[in-house]
Computed example of a mutant assay.
Amino acid sequence: MIRAGVIEDHPLYRAAVARVLSDADDIDLGPVSDSVPGFAVAGEPAGCVVVLDLKLRGVTDAAAVHKVVSMGHKVLVVSAHAGQEEVLGAISAGARGYLSKAADGEDILHAVREIAAGNTYVSPTLASFLLNSARGVRSLLSERERQVLSLLAAGERDADIAEAMAISVRTVRSYLERIRDKTGRRRRPELTRLAIEEGIT
């Protein structure tokens, strides 16, 4: 049996995650708390897979991950905050996995099982942040995606990019969404700055 716990300060989400874990045949639900200190009070023996929210009262963010890891547990972060800074900070603090709160129950169960087996698990979209930090953005993007990003950085509108590349506006927007997913940059000024930083102009 996999021993799992939950640290989440939103009551409804905390109850939902606890229910998903307790309903699984191979998981034994341990402490469920709204804070890291509250979890610590339970005295859970080392080795638990802890589903942890980042934005908590008191001990929060990477410090929360570090504290739970220091108790001897394996941390799976499930957070509504899934930007590059949060993902890299949590992994650096010792988290073994990271999911956004868009993940469904099956995703969480899969991640908990992987981590319990000694592996790591980061959703494919968020994994790009880790690749980013190691390899640079340029290598993550296809040639067409780099071309779209270059035209965006030059100040072109979606319709102008479509005309220049002889593709539809819908295709341009599809490329832009993929670029956003891979890089974690959402707004046009952020994408423009990224293109300049990476020399994609």
Rank of each mutant, 00 (worst) to 15 (best):
A159I: 15
A154Q: 15
I179S: 04
V169N: 09
R146C: 14
L194T: 01
Q147C: 08
K101H: 03
S142D: 11
L131I: 08
G155K: 11
L151K: 08
E145Q: 07
E106H: 15
E86V: 02
L52R: 06
T125W: 09
R186V: 15
G89W: 00
D23W: 12
H81M: 13
I27R: 14
V50K: 06
D53A: 09
S70A: 14
G94E: 02
V148W: 08
G58S: 14
G5K: 04
I108D: 05
V87R: 01
V87H: 03
M165R: 08
I161C: 03
R188M: 06
V36N: 03
R3S: 10
A127D: 12
R96W: 04
G184M: 06
A82E: 10
V51T: 11
V87E: 03
R57Y: 14
S70Q: 10
V59G: 05
A82V: 12
V41I: 13
I115K: 02
G89F: 03
V51G: 07
V59R: 04
K182L: 05
R113C: 00
R180L: 10
T192C: 05
T171C: 13
I161M: 11
I196T: 11
E177G: 03
V36R: 00
L126T: 06
V65H: 00
R157K: 14
R144H: 13
V65L: 01
S123L: 11
D9M: 11
A93D: 00
I91M: 09
S70W: 07
V172P: 03
E198L: 04
D9E: 09
V68W: 04
A15I: 04
K101E: 05
R144Y: 10
L131V: 13
G136L: 05
G47T: 07
V148G: 07
V6Y: 04
V87A: 00
S92N: 14
I108P: 01
A4Y: 11
M71G: 03
R170A: 15
A42M: 11
A153W: 04
A90W: 01
F129L: 04
L109E: 08
A111M: 02
A42F: 03
R157W: 13
I27Y: 13
V77P: 04
E197R: 08
R193K: 12
S133R: 10
P37I: 14
S142C: 04
E86K: 02
E106C: 09
E143V: 05
G43E: 08
H10Y: 14
L194Y: 02
K74A: 10
G184D: 06
G43M: 06
E145V: 04
D25R: 10
R135I: 09
M1S: 10
L194V: 01
Q84T: 12
L151R: 09
G47K: 09
G47S: 09
L109W: 09
D28Q: 13
P11E: 09
E163A: 13
I91E: 01
V78Y: 06
S123Q: 14
A159Y: 12
L21P: 02
I115A: 10
V17I: 15
P124C: 07
Y13W: 15
I108L: 15
A93R: 00
E145F: 04
A40G: 04
E198M: 01
A127V: 01
R113Q: 04
T171Y: 12
L151Q: 11
L12K: 07
